[in-house]
Amino acid sequence: MVSSLQVKRIGGLMLYCIIVAGILIVPFLIQSPYILHILILAGIYLILAQSLNLMLGYVGFLSLAQTAFFGIGAYTSAILAVTYRQPFWIGLILAIILPSLIAAVVGIPFLRLSRHSFVISTLGFLLICWLVARNWVEVTRGPLGIPGIPSPTLNLFDLVEVSFSSRASYYILMMTSVLIITLFLIKLVNSRIGRAFIAIREDEALAQSVGINTLKYKLIAFSISAGIAGVAGSLFAHYITFLDPTIFEFYNLEHVLVITLVGGSGTIGGPILGSVIFTILPEVLRVAKEYRLIVYGIILLSTVLLMPEGVGGRFKTYMHKRRLKGVYAK
C-alpha cells in the first residue's frame, strides 16, 4: 500500500522535476536572443532579490547594502578574471567569500542598531562602496570601467571544455545557479536557523528572552545574504562583460526592492513571482513608452496599499486559512 503521504511526496518530486526540466528546456524552444537576454537578467535580479528577501523578509532588517555586496562580488570576479587571469570559478568562489566576510565585519556594528538606523547605515555603506569604486582607480579603473571580462568556461581535467559564451548556455548556467540558491534558501528558512530568523523578525526582545543569541543569528543571515548577492554580482559581470561603478547606482536597488516587496517578502516564491512580473512588464510596456513609468508606479502603489504583504504573502495567508479549516473540520 502506498500511503497518501508517499503519494504526496512522489507527486511533489515529479512536479519539481517538471519545473526544473521546463526551465532548462527554454533555450531549446526559444531561439530569440532578446528573450533569453531578458530571462538571464531576470535570473540575476532574482538572486539579488532573494538575498534582500532573506534579510528583509526573514530577519526583518531592510538592508540597502545588498546592491553593495552585488557590486563587490562583481568587481571581485571581474578583477580576478581580467587583471589576474584567474578562471571564472575561482572568481565566483571569492565573490561569495569576500562579501560574506565584509558583511560579517560591518554587520557587528550595524546589526546592534535599531531597525531604522540599520537601514541608514547600510545606505551609507552602499554610498561608500560606490565612491571607492569610482576613486580607487589603480584597482577598479574608476569610471573608465573594466572592459573585456571573459565569458566563463568550465574546464574538466583538461579533457572537455565547456564555454558559456552563447546566450543559451549562459541561460543554463544562470538558471542552475538560481535553482541551487532557491533550494538552499528553502532548506535554510525551514531549518532551526530559519526559525530563529523569523523569531527575530517577529519580536527581537521576546526572541532574546527565549534564549536566542539575536546578534549571532543576524550576523549569520547578513553574511549569507551578502554571499548570495555576490553570486549575482559575479554572474552579472561575466554576462555583461563590462563593469563600471554604475553597478552601485540606485536603479539596481530600486529594482530589487520592488521585486521583493510586490512579490512578497518573507516567502521564497514571492520574489520569484516578482522578478517574472517586473521583467516582463517593462518589456511589454515598451510599446507605450511615455506611460511605462506611470503604469509601473500604479502597480507598485496599489500593491503597497492593497496587499502590503505582497502577492506571495497574501497567498501564504490564504493557504493557512484553508489548512486551519481542515484542522477544525476534524
Partner: peptide, 24 residues
Amino acid sequence: RLFLKLTVEQNMMIAIQQHQRLSS
C-alpha cells in the same frame, strides 16, 4: 508578548529549540 504571526505550536518550537544543545 508572543510571535503573533506564527502559530501557537511554532511559538513553542522556537523557544524549545534554543534549549536543545545543537550548534547551528
